[in-house]
Amino acid sequence: MSPANDLDLPRLLATGSTGPAPTELVVPALLLRAPTATWSELVHIYVPHGPTVAFSGRDLRSPGIAKATEVARAAGFATVVRSPGGRMVAYDAGAVVIDHLDRTTGIRHAGSATFAANAESHVRVLRGLGDVDARVGEVDGEYCPGEYSINVAGTAKVVGSAQRVTATGSLFSTVVQVAVSDEVRAVLTAVSQALGYGLRESSIAGLADYAPGLSSAEVAAAFAADYRDRLGLADGQVPAAVAAHAAGLVPEGAGPFHVDDWTRAHPVPST
C-alpha cells in the first residue's frame, strides 16, 4: 500500500446489504486485505439480511463455543466468526451495521482514540433521532462490554463497535440496535450463558424502546447522511468484483463460519 497514493483515491459511501450473513461479514474482511483498491476510504451502511450471531476470535476460546453455536442455529441465526475483535453480538433486520474501512491509517492510529472519536460522532446522530438520551460508556452487565459502548440514560446498551487493523488498513465495525426482537433478546441471553459470560437482560435495548416508531431504514439513512457530510464521502457501491467473490462462498463444517479463514483461503480479486 502506498499511503500517498491512497490519499488521492476517492472516499466512498455504500449502502444496502450484500447478501446473507456470511457474505455481509466477509465483504469488509476482503476489502481490508485487498492488496490494491480504487478507494482510500469506504463506509458501508446496511440493514442486515437476517438473524446473525457474530462471534469473535475471543469467543472461540470459550469451552462453551460448541453449545453457543448450537443454541444460535437452533433459533434460526446464522453463526459467523467476524474479523474485528470484541465479543459476541446478535442482531437481525432490526439493527443497522456500519463498516468503516480506511486505507490511509495504520496501527499507530488504532485504539482508544479511534473508538472515542467514533462514539462521539455516533452519539450526536442518535440524539438527533428523537428523545434518545445517548451516552458513551459501558453499562453494568452489557453484552460485548466496552468502554466506548453507547447506552441510553446509563441503563441499556444500544451501540457497540469493534476494530481490526492489518498492513493494508483498518476496519471499524459498528452495530446499532434499533428494534430488538424477542428472538434477538433470547439468543443474546442464551448464547452469553453458553459462553460463560455474565449478562444483565435489562441492559439489552434498541433505540425504538426510547423513540417509538423509529425504523432501521431511518437510522441507516441518518448515519449515511452524517458520514457523507462529516467525511466528505461520495455515493458509491461495494466493488462489484468483491461482492461477487463473497457471494460465491459456501459455509461448511459444524462450527461457525470463520471469516478470516475463508478470506485467507480465497484471495480477493483486484478492487
Rank of each mutant, 00 (worst) to 15 (best):
Q163V: 00
E147S: 09
D235T: 14
V152N: 01
N151A: 14
P256K: 04
D235Y: 12
A265T: 12
A224L: 04
G160F: 01
G232N: 02
P3Q: 07
P145V: 11
E142G: 05
T69I: 05
V71C: 13
A74V: 09
R108E: 14
G130Y: 06
E147W: 03
E252S: 13
T166C: 06
L30Q: 10
S173W: 14
A254P: 10
S2L: 10
V159Y: 02
R228Y: 04
G57W: 03
P35C: 10
V97I: 11
A190T: 15
C144N: 08
L9I: 02
S2Q: 10
S203H: 13
R185P: 03
A117V: 13
S270H: 05
D226A: 12
P267W: 09
V125K: 03
A208P: 02
W262T: 02
G248M: 05
E120S: 12
V259T: 11
V27R: 04
E24Y: 07
N118K: 14
P267D: 03
V250T: 12
S62P: 02
D261W: 11
L30T: 05
G57N: 06
D261V: 14
V89M: 04
A110Q: 04
A110L: 01
N5S: 15
Y197R: 09
A221C: 02
D102I: 07
P3I: 00
P256T: 05
L171T: 00
A95H: 02
T155G: 11
D260G: 04
L30M: 08
E138I: 00
T263W: 06
L171S: 04
T38C: 14
T104N: 01
P35D: 10
G50D: 06
P239R: 09
I204A: 06
R264V: 14
A247N: 08
S2W: 08
P35Y: 03
Y197G: 08
D133Y: 12
A208S: 15
V159G: 04
R200K: 13
G206W: 11
V26T: 07
F55Y: 15
V81N: 12
V71K: 14
N5M: 12
V250K: 07
S202D: 10
A119D: 00
V175Y: 10
I204F: 00
R264E: 14
A222I: 04
E142D: 06
E41A: 04
H100L: 14
P145C: 07
D226I: 02
S181P: 03
